[in-house]
């Protein structure tokens, strides 16, 4: 595969990560005024037809929502509380034996962020292994692997790609299916079911291939 194709795939992946992370925030009507959902569709279609359709479904659900309050309530019940969360959006809940927050897996997330020079932002009051933060971290890694490749810093690009692979295997990919299952089980709105479907499908079915292809390409360039 040519380099520009590889990079375009990564760019689509970058967009999806970022937009998914936005979509796990509390829903706001302003989303419809933005081009966010169209961008999601375009990026998803670039990766596969199946993914494109899922993205299209999400937009359809958003557009057909009559009362945003329903979405907000559903979002709260699933992810925010104050009562028991129906689909806790934290990795540790799925990865720790005790099912608690701030366990070893969270510490590992914190340290991985730190190694890459990142930390939770002051405005973000959730644990580091929240789905929003993990998606955004993967977005950040993709962003930088594209950037370094473009600057012909292939070794650095490779480091980002490998970090991406490791983080995914240890964290998000390890819990996204359980998380998606809970959403599908408990969500009252179609939107969140579709969002869960897209998230899981993207992470489990697509990203590995993109990473493999990118890594072999960059290794090729390093050896040149």
């Amino acid at each position: 595969m040519k380099l520009d194709q590889i990079l375009s795939q990564q760019k689509a992946q970058e967009n999806i990560y970022k937009i998914l992370s936005v979509l796990y925030h509390a829903p706001e009507e302003s989303i419809l005024e933005s081009e966010l959902l169209d961008n999601l569709i375009e990026s998803a279609e670039f990766i596969s037809e199946k993914l494109g359709n899922m993205a299209q479904d999400i937009k359809t659900e958003f557009v057909s929502t009559e009362n945003f309050q329903d979405l907000k309530v559903d979002h709260s019940k699933l992810f925010v509380g104050p009562f028991e969360l129906l689909a806790p959006p934290y990795g540790s809940v799925y990865l720790e034996k005790e099912g608690t927050v701030m366990g070893d897996s969270t510490m590992n997330v914190i340290n991985t962020y730190k190694e890459l020079g990142l930390d939770r932002s002051d405005d973000f009051k959730e644990p580091h292994d929240h789905i929003i933060a993990e998606l955004e971290f993967l977005y950040y890694l993709t962003f930088n692997s594209i950037k370094e490749t473009g600057n012909e810093n292939y070794k650095e690009a490779l480091e980002y790609l490998e970090a991406h692979q490791n983080f995914l295997a240890k964290h998000l990919a390890a819990w996204v299916s359980d998380f998606a299952a809970k959403i599908k089980e408990h969500a009252n709105t179609e939107l969140y079911k579709k969002l869960a479907e897209l998230t899981e499908s993207f992470i489990k079915d697509e990203v590995d291939d993109i990473l493999e292809q990118s890594i072999s390409k960059v290794q090729e360039l390093i050896n040149d």
Binding site: D119, R120, E136
Partner: peptide
Amino acid sequence: ELDSLAEA
């Protein structure tokens, strides 16, 4: 563009 994360 980072929201939940920030450069440390």
